[in-house]
Design a protein around this nucleic acid. Structure first.
Lengths: 129, 129
DNA sequence: CCGCATCCGCGTTGATACTG
DNA sequence: CAGTATCAACGCGGATGCGG
């Protein structure tokens, strides 16, 4: 790749998340959206078709799933393979980069699930007041 | 209410994130929202006032900051101390639970920032097609 | 039939103004 | 200073359409 290296390196410094128009905010949004999280985690177990993902990520609409996958694909986290057959067959899988990302996300989700009970207790305490 | 402890333990099992109405989805939403992330990370450096947070989390509106803080407080991640003086003085800090959560979130954000350059390259590749 | 783009109600968000 | 009230704008979900 040629190299917009210089241009990028200016904007891409640590802590730039605090800057309103830093691209990291966009990446963060893709990765941490509910459907982004579910897709990344689901794909850890292997390649999935569109409809498989739709079934596993309970509650996602077709539109949001397509949108989510496009975002993750554009960011280089997900690989899309379309087989030109009838009926259509499209496979989604994690890229090496996506596998790293999904690992981070999974660890966050694991923590949340492990501590969910404490959170629920905290919520109830507030509600009683 | 006494304790729906039994009730919770049924619903709060690993992998329940895939269930549409599992509370973990709500927690995830609070924690991974853009403003949730910024607040959690910002508070790692110590107690902050409302306006401090507003200034550091660039781009957040007063409404969303208030809303975000209420959500994180309800979930037991953030502690709110209001000093009844004029002008008002309210301090926000992390609870022990919140400190753990923010640690997880920070590690995700660190990874994103560290790999942002690769993501930007992937985006450009797609755009060139 | 599957994958996705489009169009339309509606809830959530954001900018502004106002109050304790 | 720390929020709430208000209204406009945007994003999401659901239904529909359509090419492959």
């Amino acid at each position: 790749m040629a190299k917009p290296a210089t241009k990028l390196s200016e904007q891409v410094r640590r802590g730039e998340l605090y800057t309103v128009d830093c691209p990291s905010r966009g990446v963060l949004k893709h990765v941490t959206s509910l459907w982004g999280v579910l897709v990344l985690i689901t794909l850890r177990s292997g390649t999935h078709r569109f409809s498989d993902l739709r079934r596993k990520a309970k509650g996602v609409s077709e539109k949001m799933l397509a949108q989510t996958l496009q975002g993750l694909e554009a960011d280089g986290f997900v690989d899309r393979k379309s087989h030109p057959v009838v009926p259509p067959h499209v496979e989604y899988s994690l890229t090496p980069l996506g596998r790293e990302a999904s690992s981070q996300v999974e660890s966050l989700v694991d923590w949340i699930e492990a501590n969910l009970y404490q959170v629920m207790q905290a919520r109830q305490r507030k509600q009683e007041i």
